[in-house]
């Protein structure tokens, strides 16, 4: 296992997001066990793991929907462990939730406005940015989000998350429920967003695709981090290959 290393774009400065020995419980059940995780600014980190390994719980802990029993969550060096979800979102975290969770009976435009709720509904600049990333959304802006196809809904979900100009974008299983061609497209978009300077933490089961674009990766197994390192190293890792990459 290699140290969280010098790869990636992060300078020696403080990490953007830092989880320090986080323990999370659902009632009596110990979910996350001493998880240490960092995302530096501008970095694309993927968090891999099978079913029930605690991936989504990690994201919920980052957002404050689940409070850890022990350990701290830091964002930009500030301890946000006891802060509310909306405080953290206001600080610059955004999420593309699992299954996208768009507001179906609202238009694409309204969905985007909701993404910038804390900024008062979105500046023109934010709209321009999202529309230039996803020109299709501009075309479909007055269509109800629930009537879009899966791939287009994914774009709306990403656009919505980017409306608040986040410093860190969390993505929960972006490939879920998408056709293989759309998974590829989706990850191209993720990479594009990443290149525009947004740090990302991508939670995925699809190790192959996510490692191909990530700077670093972590592997969770039943609530513990079992592997971490630069994406290139992880791709070559024997156990991981057997367990996830199937080759």
């Amino acid at each position: 296992m290699s140290e969280p290393s010098s790869s990636g774009n992060g300078a020696a400065s403080e990490p953007l997001l830092q989880l320090e020995s986080v323990d999370t419980f659902y009632g009596p059940i110990h979910i996350l066990q001493g998880v240490n995780l960092q995302v530096r600014s501008g970095e694309l980190v993927c968090l891999l793991g099978g079913n029930a390994s605690g991936k989504s719980t990690t994201l919920k802990t980052v957002l404050g929907i689940v409070r850890p029993r022990n350990g701290t969550v830091r964002f930009e060096g500030e301890d946000v462990t006891s802060r509310s979800t909306s405080y953290r979102i206001g600080k610059g975290i955004a999420i593309v939730p699992e299954n996208r969770r768009l507001f179906g009976p609202m238009t694409v435009l309204e969905n985007l406005q909701m993404g910038a709720y804390l900024q008062g509904g979105g500046t023109k600049e934010a709209f321009d940015r999202v529309y230039s990333l996803f020109p299709l959304l501009h075309e479909r802006r007055s269509q109800l989000a629930g009537t879009l196809s899966g791939g287009e809904q994914q774009m709306v979900a990403m656009g919505r998350a980017l409306m608040g100009k986040p410093k860190l974008l969390l993505m929960d299983e972006p490939s879920m429920g998408l056709a293989p061609i759309l998974v590829e497209r989706s990850f191209e978009i993720i990479q594009q967003v990443h290149e525009s300077g947004v740090a990302m933490l991508v939670v995925e089961q699809n190790a192959n695709v996510s490692l191909s674009i990530a700077d670093r990766g972590y592997v969770l197994s039943t609530g513990r981090l079992v592997l971490e390192g630069p994406a290139a190293e992880l791709r070559e890792h024997e156990d991981l290959r057997k367990a996830y990459l199937g080759r």
Binding site: P97, R101, F103, P105, E110, Q113, M114, R160, G164
Partner: peptide
């Protein structure tokens, strides 16, 4: 208004609304 849309959003999916920072 923004509040009206936020009402609609939290009616449709309270968790997603919460994730957007909507109180």
């Amino acid at each position: 208004s923004r509040t009206g849309r936020a009402w609609k959003a939290s009616r449709e999916d309270p968790l997603a609304a919460e994730l957007m920072g909507i109180p």
